[in-house]
């Protein structure tokens, strides 16, 4: 398998979008998934618990220095940036806001691109700002695979549209197809 991790960036409209994508993945999905969903600074781990109940894969909040395991989605905690280290472990940071966001999608995408180069799949979903497009361009430069939700059907099209304008995106897919696309990458022949 050439891919080593999936990163997902999503903002407004993310709750349902994440459920739709992550619930398609089987429990033995062979890659870790790192997710930045923009949240209010005081949010608790409700989203992780809510998704975990609805998905076959494990969904949890990222902890500092935790090694990213396959079949698990790690959500950036509210008010912390989530980064990936070269050794595949997760790191948190309280650096300044980037694109008015902490966590920032750009930061996750850029650091994961550094760590995994062409072994990375990045997915941009619904959202009302342009966080993620800079990071998506960075990951394309290092050879990763870019998947963006079709703005036409997105609850909030601004973020996917900005991502498509920022770089050469490999696949533009409607939401229901994105989860299937990821799952099919690893369906036994």
């Amino acid at each position: 398998m050439p891919y080593r991790a999936v990163v997902i960036g999503v903002s407004a409209g993310g709750l349902e979008a994440l459920r739709e994508v992550l619930s398609c993945l089987p429990a033995d999905f062979p890659l870790p998934l790192l997710v930045v969903q923009h949240l209010g600074v005081d949010s608790d781990d409700f989203l992780a618990r809510w998704l975990d109940q609805r998905c076959a894969i494990k969904v949890k909040e990222a902890e500092d220095k935790e090694p990213a395991a396959p079949g698990t989605a790690y959500l950036a905690p509210a008010n912390y940036h989530l980064l990936m280290e070269d050794d595949g472990s997760l790191a948190l940071s309280l650096e300044d806001w980037v694109n008015f966001s902490r966590p920032s999608i750009d930061l996750l995408f850029e650091s994961a691109a550094e760590a995994y180069g062409k072994g990375l799949i990045a997915v941009v979903l619904t959202g009302a700002n342009d966080d993620g497009s800079r990071g998506l361009a960075a990951m394309k430069r290092s050879g990763g695979l870019a998947v963006v939700q079709d703005p036409a059907g997105a609850e909030f099209p601004v973020m996917p549209r900005a991502a498509i304008q920022a770089t050469q995106v490999d696949f533009v897919l409607p939401l229901p197809a994105i989860g299937r696309f990821l799952a099919n990458l690893y369906r036994p022949a």
């Binding site: 980064l83 280290e85 790191a91 940071s93 650096e95 650091s111 550094e114």
Partner: peptide
């Protein structure tokens, strides 16, 4: 120091 952070700064 953790590298990803350091590199960015």
């Amino acid at each position: 120091y953790a590298r990803a952070h350091l590199r960015r700064r």
